[in-house]
Nucleic acid binder design. Structure first.
Lengths: 348, 348
DNA sequence: ACTAGCACTCTCATCTGTTGAGTGCTAATT
DNA sequence: AATTAGCACTCAACAGATGAGAGTGCTAGT
């Protein structure tokens, strides 16, 4: 175990490096953190901390910067019970402001808030989409050639899309709605997908075949990675002092690859929070850290939210923001979840 | 007027600079464009072209690069009847692929296609939103606490939003729909906005006051700049060889400022295409050119589309893409415009 | 255990010389 | 009058060289 002084010094290095992104010298630590001890003493401590793997020297006559191990230690030991400021909480609350209830909007708002509060890039990945089940489908005629299809699921995910449809007569859409709800309502997306082929060829549905196919396509597109990975604040990397043009390019090409981002954010099997620091196995972005959290509504996991930033990120702030936003989403959504959609619609 | 040879040389400089972003030397021009004349001759021509203001030397012993005037001349004289390749046209058509009919989606797709085909940043600004009029409003109950409001306008702009509403009994939403259509249907957004105050306080609407307010807010938010400026491909600037970290930062902060972008794209009073080259009055981005086009549906102007790229951009390609995408949008939308929404709904 | 002192190392910035690309000019040629 | 070969000139870019400054590691003394 590290001596108290070593811990203080280690924390000092991490804190200062988080602030300034520059190597920290023994003199600087002495000035800001110690009255009773000289720089030389701190130097020997720094030297042993380096031997232990906590610190790294960019070159012989530079100060020290923290290694991933140091961040790890910092996170594990100095991160207890930090809370957000009242203004920050108010900002978050104001953003959600219950003006909307659609999951797409909430998730997008959450990503934006997380990114804005932390000043890092945020990512939200929606998961378990196959387990979502459909509560009902509405079809609203717009004119004689098109209609709006609204798909309502449990956990409130609403997706809608305008489709082309030849509404032969007035009852066409009403009949179609009844039939389509008979087919889809109460079934999970995974279930529907696995039986997609058989549903398509059912002969008795001939009249509605085209309409059915359109709706099928909407449902199948739910899984589309493009729709289930939301990123915000990518451009903030340009403001980090350590960012070069080259690294910015790499970062952006990683961020645009929804598949790897999704993998990066979601591999924290069953822990509430996960921190990845400096594991360069995550190819593409070097010197980056990733903090992720599982998000649930009513105890049911709906996805993961993450923050991608430099290793020297403000971990405590990131974690508190992720946590607070997660709770906020949960409290917004939990009442809508178990409501019965079909209450005033006996015909479906 | 410029001699034929001067024109050839000027075109050569612009073409080569567009390709390589490097100053062009007399020798290079001689090799690629002239068999019958020596580099020295070209040198004298270059020198006079420089005196005339068409060319610029970064430093004494460098080649020439085109000035804004050169691009202007290039655009005015060498840009006639260039058309897209068949594959390119097919790519564009495939993107639109009539899978969707909603203006938001079409505009987003258009922005993406324009950016992808040109490899520059694209911007689309929707205009004249106040002149859009509402064809009808639908309210679909989702559960006993929330409903989906769908606003359908001429020119097919559909906006929908989930709102909180206390549906007291089964006929509540139906009654509300009738009343709300009585108030809003057939009126333009501008009209509604200017009379917003009076509508809100009408006493007889007390039962639906809350609902009415929600819908009012949705309509008012139509104008929101955030919603009417769509950008795509911002990150492509990082791939230009002339981009520095600093200029990338400037560019991104300009692009994020929807208000200036909107002004930048929309100030081409009544010309079909507009090219701004090197006018640094547009503060923020230096060495950038902006090509904009007016977009209309059925002859009615709906907005402006633009491409922002380096001065040395491939103007002919940009213009053909803008033009082709504009026509495509028009042909997709024109049939839906004059359809009568209320055909099978006599109750509204 | 701590510290003062000093030699050592390495970056960063500045300067210098060299190279090569490309020009401008001039005198000769067509 | 237009073109060209030839040559001196300019300047950016590169590579060393040099010095200053920051910060360390080590050692001897407290």
């Amino acid at each position: 175990m590290l001596s108290t002084r070593k811990q203080t010094i280690l924390k000092a290095v991490v804190d200062e490096y988080i602030k300034g992104a520059l190597p920290i010298s023994s003199g600087e630590i002495k000035n800001k953190y110690f009255d009773d001890v000289s720089a030389a003493t701190i130097r020997t401590e720094l030297s042993t901390l380096e031997d232990m793997g906590y610190l790294v020297q960019p070159h012989t006559s530079a100060g020290r910067i923290p290694s991933p191990l140091a961040y790890r230690f910092y996170v594990d030991n100095f991160l207890r019970d930090k809370t957000l400021k009242i203004e920050e909480i108010e900002t978050i609350n104001a953003s959600f402001n219950n003006k909307f209830l659609r999951v797409e909007e909430i998730v997008k708002t959450a990503a934006k808030v997380i990114s804005d509060m932390t000043n890092y890039t945020s990512v939200i990945v929606l998961k378990n989409i196959n387990k979502v089940y459909i509560k009902g489908i509405k079809i609203i005629g717009l004119d004689d050639k098109s209609a709006l299809v609204v798909i309502i699921t449990d956990s409130g995910i609403i997706r809608d899309k305008v489709i082309l449809v030849d509404a032969q007569d007035e009852s066409f859409l009403a009949d179609a709605t009844v039939l389509i709800n008979k087919i889809f309502a109460g079934r999970s997306l995974g279930d529907i997908k696995s039986k997609a082929a058989s549903a398509r060829v059912d002969a008795e549905l001939n009249t509605f075949r085209e309409l059915l196919n359109s709706i099928m396509n909407i449902i199948l597109s739910y899984e589309d990675e493009t729709n289930s990975v939301i990123t915000e604040g990518e451009k903030k990397v340009l403001d980090y002092p350590e960012t070069s043009l080259e690294s910015a390019r790499n970062f952006f090409s990683l961020i645009d690859d929804k598949k790897s981002i999704s993998a990066l954010i979601c591999d924290n099997a069953d822990i509430e929070f996960s921190l990845k620091i400096g594991k360069s196995e995550t190819n593409g972005i070097d010197k980056c850290a990733v903090v992720t959290a599982r998000y649930s509504i009513n105890g049911k996991e709906i996805g993961h939210a993450g923050v991608i930033g430099p290793e020297r990120m403000d971990y405590s702030k990131v974690i508190s923001v992720l946590s607070y936003v997660g709770n906020t989403i949960n409290s917004i959504m939990e009442n809508t979840d178990d409501a019965d959609l079909n209450k005033d619609e006996p015909e479906v």
